[in-house]
Design a protein around this nucleic acid. Structure first.
Lengths: 351, 351
DNA sequence: CTGAAAGCGCTTACAG
DNA sequence: CTGAAAGCGCTTACAG
């Protein structure tokens, strides 16, 4: 093997300056084609790779993005962030950037860890996920001068002073509700979370709007009637659906697949198996929904990830990199409804 | 704010050499206590953080570990790697190391990507997961000179020339089987995957040994009798359990929670609800098992992650860092059995 | 289009 | 215990 090739060693081998090689790598169009080809051939032959540290030290860019990973509380819904994470890595890699993971036990710790990494130059920017009401992270990062893009809109009022990408949950539940209305259902319950979570309220809003548009009277949409609220979970979904059944619900749009799985067991008992499946729509299109044959709202997470990375890199490579001048971009992506067929194999144990 | 502090600027402020500050950071014991305190105070006050790039360029260590992330095929079983990933990040961070994520579509691509990152100095080492029979990655990384530790033993024969940490699946299924034997079951099926996957065969082996020790005749343990093999999945678990029932099985040890969830629906029908739950044991102790009240074998993934990171950093900081001289370490951790109680709320829809 | 110079901010030897 | 020197391997100006 010998020693690892450097710009220096390559340059003497080729009889050109280090400079030229650097240009071939970073500004190919500025180098004469014949020289470029000769250099590229030697780079390939020698297995030369520029030192990340040296490049980063000189250019003041690490080409690295930070992201906080959270422990999966719920194996069912966790797969969404999993898909997002995977897509972010893939997009970053394709664009010659790297993804660095951090953990934290609080938002404050997350912000300060990201800021610390940014100060050392280990990351150029970071991605924020799981935004929520009164989220302190955007202002903390803005203050610390850490460029970032959020996956998730800011849920409190006021103008957003940062870029974000989100998925339009209300559009998703609207689709789901309209689908059930189209099947002839009128008393369609919404099984969702207690008020106060931005994501949950957003999903409820889509159902409510679709129902109102269809002329369902407001008193039926009231809390405790077709509007059922509960913590997330399979058992909770079953219980909420039982309450909705007492309000004569024949179908349900759910804020999560966990709730939908729970709800489907009630409907399965109550009607024919086929009706049961088609009368519940979950959210997130998790593998569990697929396994059980439940329809679900699919969030375009890969698109969201790709957009987040695009915005981040755009911001980092912008000629005017001043975050105060760059105006924030907001992107709301529309989910799609995944309809599933009744799977007879699954129903061997149904009544 | 002004400009970002550097060793240089701190040194002139304090009237010491850059050197001394560097020593305070990297070899505190070598600096006089009074000087050290003065320097530390100024570091804190100024918010100084050493440049990762400069440090890495000079020391030839990036304090960064690479890991390939895979898309979750199955939301149920994916949470295991999720927990592992989280623990690896946490341990690395605690030990002043960072975790870099990569994606790949093949093992070859993974190895070459890790080797490339190692050549640029972006990572010092990497973690291998999901080892399998005829895994080419260890030799590829060894050839490329990339230090690594595997989470998962090498499943082919021959001496392992690299360090690994794994969880003793056979010990887990043995525990599960002995538990069911203790409850009075004799005809305990094993629902597992087709032969050839190291992990799956290992789990089957534990059941087989425990059954043989209990004096269950070999013909009952035969393939197609109590030994049922199938692809992973809920539906597959149900089907496999139905076949096992025809061989008069009253209980089952499963290679995964997905299979256990499927199996439990069969037993639920067949016996009392309580028996059903206690007569199935899953594997991985996923949130789904917890939600459904299924007993399961819990893998100590956090311990495994911690051990992997320890070994990796040990290897990196060893005075003799030559991988050929350092003898490989092998660690097999023992899982534990998580027993769950019957949850009556869940059984409202049982016959 | 190509090259000689400077310097990014550290740590690693080594001398006092 | 402390300091002056060298240099890690690049890229960014700038001059030809």
């Amino acid at each position: 093997m010998g020693t690892k090739p450097t710009l220096q060693s390559l340059a003497s081998t080729l009889g050109v300056s280090r400079q030229t090689i650097s240009n071939v790598l970073n500004n190919p169009q500025v180098v004469q084609a014949s020289t470029r080809d000769r250099v590229l051939a030697e780079i390939r032959a020698s297995g030369y790779r520029p030192s990340a540290a040296a490049r980063s030290l000189r250019s003041r860019r690490s080409q690295t993005i930070g992201l906080r990973i959270r422990p999966a509380v719920d194996g069912i819904n966790g797969s969404l962030m999993d898909a997002f994470l995977h897509a972010v890595v893939e997009c970053s890699q394709r664009r010659d950037h790297r993804l660095l993971l951090i953990t934290a036990t609080s938002d404050e710790q997350e912000s300060s860890e990201q800021a610390a990494l940014h100060t050392t130059g280990a990351i150029d920017a970071c991605v924020l996920t799981d935004t929520h009401r009164d989220d302190d992270r955007p202002s903390a990062l803005l203050d610390a001068g850490v460029p970032f893009v959020a996956f998730g809109r800011p849920w409190q009022d006021g103008p957003a002073d940062h870029s974000w990408v989100d998925i339009d949950g209300a559009a998703g539940t609207r689709l789901a509700t309209e689908h059930l209305l189209g099947l002839g259902h009128r008393r369609i319950a919404f099984l969702g979370w207690p008020e106060g979570s931005g994501v949950g309220d957003d999903r409820r809003a889509g159902w409510r709007l679709a129902m109102a548009d269809a002329g369902v009277p407001a008193e039926d949409l009231a809390l405790g009637v077709l509007d059922q609220r509960t913590d997330d979970g399979v058992v909770e979904g079953t219980q909420a659906m039982e309450r909705a059944r007492r309000a004569a619900a024949t179908a349900a749009v759910c804020a999560s697949d966990s709730l939908a799985v729970g709800a489907s067991t009630v409907l399965r008992r109550a009607t024919t198996a086929e009706t049961a499946r088609t009368a519940v729509v979950g959210f997130d299109d998790t593998p569990v929904a697929a396994a059980l044959g439940l329809s679900s709202v699919r969030q375009p997470v890969a698109d969201a990830a790709s957009r987040v990375v695009d915005l981040l890199i755009e911001r980092l490579t912008a000629p005017d990199a001043d975050p105060r001048t760059a105006h924030p971009v907001h992107d709301l992506l529309t989910p799609e409804l995944v309809l599933r067929e009744f799977d007879p194999r699954l129903d061997q144990h149904a009544p």
